[in-house]
Design a protein around this nucleic acid. Sequence first.
DNA 1: ATAATGATGAGAGACCCA
DNA 2: TGGGTCTCTCATCATTAT
Length: 615
Amino acid sequence: MVEHSTDDEVDWNTDDEIDNLHWSPPSSPETSLGPAGTTSPNLTHMRISDETVARFIEMGFSSDMIARAIDETGSNSELILETLCKYTTSSEASSSKSKVIDHLIGMGFHEELVLKAIQEYGDENIEEETNALLSYTEAEKLCETDDEDINMNDDDNLFSLSSDEEDELNSCDEDKRLKDLIKMDFPRQEAAIALERCGENASLGEIVDFICAAQMAREFDEFFEVHDEKETISNSKKRRAFNELPRSGRKPNSAMANDHELIRLPNPMIGFGVPNEPGIMTHRPVPIPDDARGPPYFYYENIAMAPKGVWSKISSQLYGIMPEFVDSKFFCAAARKRGYIHNLPIKDRFQIQPPPHSTIQEAFPFTVRWWPSWDLRTKLNCLLTCIGSAQLTNRIRVVLEKHDGEPPLNVQKAVIYQCKKWNMIWVGENRVAPLEAVEMEELLGFPRDHTRGGGISRTDRYKSLGNSFQVDTVGYHLSVLKPLFPKGINVLSLFSGIGGAEVALRNLQIPMNVVVSVEISEVNRNILKNFWRQTDQRGTLRDFGDVRELSNRIIEQLMEEYGAFDLVIGGSPCNNLAGGNRHTRSGLEGEHSSLFYEYCRILKTVRRKASEMRR
DNA sequence: ATAATGATGAGAGACCCA
DNA sequence: TGGGTCTCTCATCATTAT
């Protein structure tokens, strides 16, 4: 056995094994490793006893919250309990005012309103602040509506609202169309909005269609009691505000030069809320525009950490709806930071039961025996498409075996760096290993062996899993569809992959009457077909290869054959957006990621055809 | 011919501290 | 508040093995 080394004695730069293999992180290895990002303190290694932790868990607090409370208060169990209670009652886990501000701004509220709310309610209670902000927003909407109502009453000519001379030139034609619509018994206000939204070139039929779609959408919203009718006029203003106003002046951003670089990620990344965490919202801070309301509903997904400007561009192409950024670490034991743009209601979401294990140790109990006390991870990083090499795990074993007992800090740091980088877990004494595919399936919420067999190679299996949805996260968002479609749902699933959307709907027990799936990979299509057969689905599964070959005509034919789609769901390729891509991170216009525009094309075709069918 | 393997950083947000 | 540092990221490609 090699003699124990001190930190000073170990020189990684002169160690042939280490130096040649680029073990150490690029920055200074002397800095202490602290829990950050997706990692949090391992409860079993904290200063308080396991019994105390177990007692808190029995009391219903999540391990994440407990870890955070310990972080903040130290080892005094009474203080920890007090802090935990504060979390649950005050809905605020962060003591930092700036974090609160960032979080609220990340939700989509304007900074001015956030500061006002903080001033009135302090920075301790996000729930009250959220309510206050919603009140402000509602009040603002009412003012805007009133203003426009007054203007409209003051002058019968709708276009006297605008000082823009160009509008006035067109006012005669639009005025005639407005009168036509009123004669058709449409409310004046709705007709005016429709005229404004559809533009001067829209036919009367298209405007009528717009109004019908808006009315139908409102009926759904009323069902969920999430929408105030008076907000309609202000939507376009809200959208402009969302896209154009600086979202915070507190943190100057060099990239704020244009409109497409203003969307910021919320911290914590919980979107409109996640189970077991404070801050669940029942109203969107920025309402969905009339022309984007469902049905049909749509749900779009891509990576959160896309290059600057990408999400603004995506949002602008999808009716200006604000993305909901969620990290799946709040749903399972692995991080997955993603943005979702959808027009689903957000009230009364529920989690698929049973929920997944929330820590690595709970998900993979066999690792606990081998997990060293100096590896504080409780959550894995994002599951990617590649795994760590066998050689790397061997090097780690060899180096650790040189040290009897706990290795020196710099060795620990180097090992942890590699474990985090390659998402490896402890499977034996001094032995780490990348996740097995079946373990990734479990973390992502798929049935065991969902991707196993049927002709897929091991490499492709990892690739498919790395590209997939986290089922529980998506399922939580889709759960609101369950009461809406008790008799089943027609789904258009684009970029289906291994069928994350389908698995989520199945877990939610929402019957799938028809699923039209579009997926370029044959092995992935086969995986979905196998799932369909294996789960005894009664509905119809149709599959297509390339989205570019799904012409508008084919879409219309499918809708005539099966009826309108109720949900269009999919995440377009992220290859050209992902941070791990060294070669072709060319942004949304890249070879693969530009297929996003196919999603938009298909969605618009589906919505247009659906409205025609309604008529 | 197909599958497995290992080498290949930059970009951007989070965090820390003066 | 701003600058420095830490941290993480739905990957691609050439080479080697099967």
